[in-house]
């Protein structure tokens, strides 16, 4: 059982990062459950129907979902703020309906026979993605993403093509959600459309908002806490969701920017500040 918890915590950390990556350029995506479904179903078809190796199916389905995410973001990014959120919620709903009505994917019955994921695979991907995000957080790319997120018009005046930056982050976030979805599907053995409904997308966003929207650690912490804590308050039986909901509200009241609110400074002048210049 403990192994399952850790596995789902790892998957949820990856999903939280997939939301965080898109948020890095300023868009809040509720479509990542849909991208996760693309990954799970596409890789599931590849392995069960066409006999592909899982390690080929995961990157292939991630690339497919990345392309899909970038394509969706092109029209979606013409909207802003709450409207963009509504568009991405729409994508999530459409995805579930599309799978339910596609016979090739098993429809409402689901798709079975997906095997091959070990918990350590997820752990390895968490470490790899975390390391990438950590390295990026000290680069010019991080600064440009922060600039687009804070004021895309000013970023544009400096010469940044904000639309391009957002489309790429949408694609990368979608690809990561799909990779997590592929691993998830091949652990569950049997996947159904409701595994990828709007609640999944909602939870991913909640992990990030609860943990902290400004750095990679917040998203990971939020996902880990929200996956593992409910298991430890099981004694509360049917009151569990209520207590959990109250905890979330309390936390957001106390720390509206999330548990870990800090932003990593990408570069410091440090010793280059000449002493005689200092006040």
């Amino acid at each position: 059982m403990m192994q399952d918890y850790l596995f789902f915590a790892g998957i949820n950390i990856l999903l939280a990062w997939s939301v965080y990556i898109i948020l890095m350029s300023g868009s809040l995506s509720f479509a990542n459950g849909g991208f996760m479904a693309v990954g799970a179903y596409a890789s599931g078809l590849m392995t069960t129907r066409y006999g592909w190796d899982l390690w080929l199916a995961i990157p292939a389905s991630a690339a497919l979902a990345g392309l899909f995410g970038a394509l969706i973001s092109l029209p979606a990014l013409r909207t802003r703020g709450v409207y963009l959120i509504l568009v991405t919620i729409g994508v999530s709903f459409c995805m579930v309906v599309a799978i339910e009505s596609t016979e090739l994917l098993g429809g409402v019955q689901g798709l079975g026979g997906l095997v091959g994921t070990e918990p350590w695979h997820v752990g390895a991907l968490v470490l790899a993605v975390g390391a990438c995000l950590w390295l990026v957080s000290y680069t010019p790319l991080q600064r440009i993403l922060d600039a687009v997120r804070e004021d895309e018009h000013v970023a544009g005046a400096l010469g940044v093509n904000a639309t391009y930056v957002k489309v790429v982050t949408f694609g990368v976030g979608a690809a990561l959600a799909a990779a997590a979805g592929a691993l998830y599907g091949h652990y569950l053995i049997f996947i159904r459309p409701e595994h990828f409904n709007i609640m999944i997308s909602l939870f991913m966003v909640l992990y990030v908002i609860l943990g902290g929207v400004n750095n990679l650690w917040g998203a990971a912490l939020g996902a880990a806490l929200m996956t593992l804590v409910p298991e430890f308050i099981r004694v509360l039986a049917e009151w569990r969701p209520t207590v959990f909901g109250v905890l979330i509200v309390l936390l957001l009241l106390v720390r509206p920017e999330g548990i870990l609110a800090f932003r990593t400074v990408t570069a410091r002048a440090g010793k280059r500040i000449r002493k005689e210049g200092a006040p």
């Binding site: 990026v136 680069t139 010019p140 790319l141 600064r143 440009i144 993403l145 922060d146 600039a147 804070e150 004021d151 000013v154 970023a155 400096l158 010469g159 940044v160 930056v165 790429v168 400004n214 932003r263 400074v265 990408t266 570069a267 410091r268 002048a269």
Partner: peptide, 27 residues
């Protein structure tokens, strides 16, 4: 309209044209 969440140094670094033109190659 500065990037208020960034440091003074970062506000200048972010504008260098070689990275602004190709943010992903900046890596």
């Amino acid at each position: 309209r500065l990037f208020r969440r960034m440091s003074v140094l970062e506000n200048v670094l972010v504008a260098f044209p070689e990275h602004v033109r190709s943010p992903f190659l900046s890596l």
